[in-house]
């Protein structure tokens, strides 16, 4: 068996590796190179060294976008995971209509980001119109608008992962805890949560990276208005690339820095939650 796997490894892995190289590794390396260049089109570049990286520091919008994104990530990771977990708990109790609710909660996830952004823009603006305001009244409105949107979209997906995790908790463990006189809270804290830690790792990783690199929803919901105060990093990079002649490289440099930050945070998070996982 081992030998067969080794022998057929190239056949099965090659297509994926080829696609991954073409679609990810090559553009990624090109992107790093481009961040040191000045260019209009990516085939016609001029090497300029660290100029683009120096330019970033003269751009206050980037730092603002970073803070905004960080804050957004913290809030959305917490809310999405807490709500998703609560709903998952409710929907594993065997109440009537469980399957129907699971489907309903999962459905928002099937709609694309841009569409969602516009739908929520209409909905929220419809409510705010009663007060003579819109979502782009200030950055705070945009912030909470994005939180609502992301919660609505992602809770269902995370819920499914949590449901799978909760259903895998052995019944004997809970039963044993109950016989020992544990309250519901104690069962949750000392048995269920440690046992679903792998799901928590996955869900927090997914929500963290999704929130950090959020683009479509941001573009459709507020487009960074007013005055870039609801602009997240991905949108900031995009705008840098397209709205100033000669700043394509600076946008690329921002993207490289952004990648390093996201990778570092995601790895730290992964390590942290991994260490809390228990073996069954």
């Amino acid at each position: 068996m081992e030998k067969a796997i080794k022998r057929y490894f190239p056949i099965f892995a090659l297509p994926t590796i080829a696609a991954f190289t073409l679609g990810f590794i090559v553009p990624f390396l090109m992107g790093i190179y481009l961040s040191f260049c000045e260019f209009t089109t990516i085939t016609d570049t001029k090497f300029v060294g660290l100029k683009n990286y120096i330019r970033i520091f003269s751009d206050p919008t980037f730092l603002h976008a970073l803070w905004f994104t960080a804050l957004f990530t913290v809030v959305s990771v917490l809310t999405i995971n807490v709500f998703a977990f609560i709903i998952a708990m409710l929907l594993t109790k065997g109440i009537k209509g469980t399957n129907f609710f699971r489907t309903v909660f999962f459905m928002p996830n099937l709609i694309g980001g841009i569409v969602l952004g516009y739908i929520w823009q209409i909905l929220l603006n419809g409510i705010l119109a009663n007060f003579g305001r819109t979502l782009t009244y200030s950055g705070t409105y945009g912030f909470w608008g994005l939180i609502v949107l992301m919660n609505w979209q992602q809770i269902g997906y995370m819920m499914i992962i949590y449901i799978a995790g909760i259903q895998n908790v052995p019944g004997e463990l809970i039963e044993a805890a109950k016989i020992d006189g544990a309250t519901n809270w104690q069962v949750l804290k000392n048995v269920t949560i440690p046992m679903v830690m792998p799901s928590i790792t996955i869900c927090s990783f997914l929500t963290l990276t999704n929130s950090f690199k959020l683009f479509d929803q941001n573009l459709a919901l507020t487009a960074g208005e007013p005055s870039n105060s609801s602009q997240m990093v991905a949108l900031n990079i995009f705008e840098t690339f397209y709205t100033r002649t000669g700043w394509e490289g600076a946008g690329q440099a921002k993207a490289v820095i952004f990648f390093i930050i996201v990778a570092a945070i995601a790895m730290a998070q992964n390590r942290m939650t991994r260490s809390k996982e228990v073996q069954q």
Partner: peptide, 25 residues
């Protein structure tokens, strides 16, 4: 000078219009 300039003016105009910014911006 750039699209970015237009966007900056546009945002400031909007904020002035909705009362969250002043004309100085």
């Amino acid at each position: 000078p750039s699209e970015n300039w237009k966007n900056g003016v546009g945002s400031a105009l909007l904020e002035y219009a909705q009362g969250t910014g002043d004309w100085a911006a």
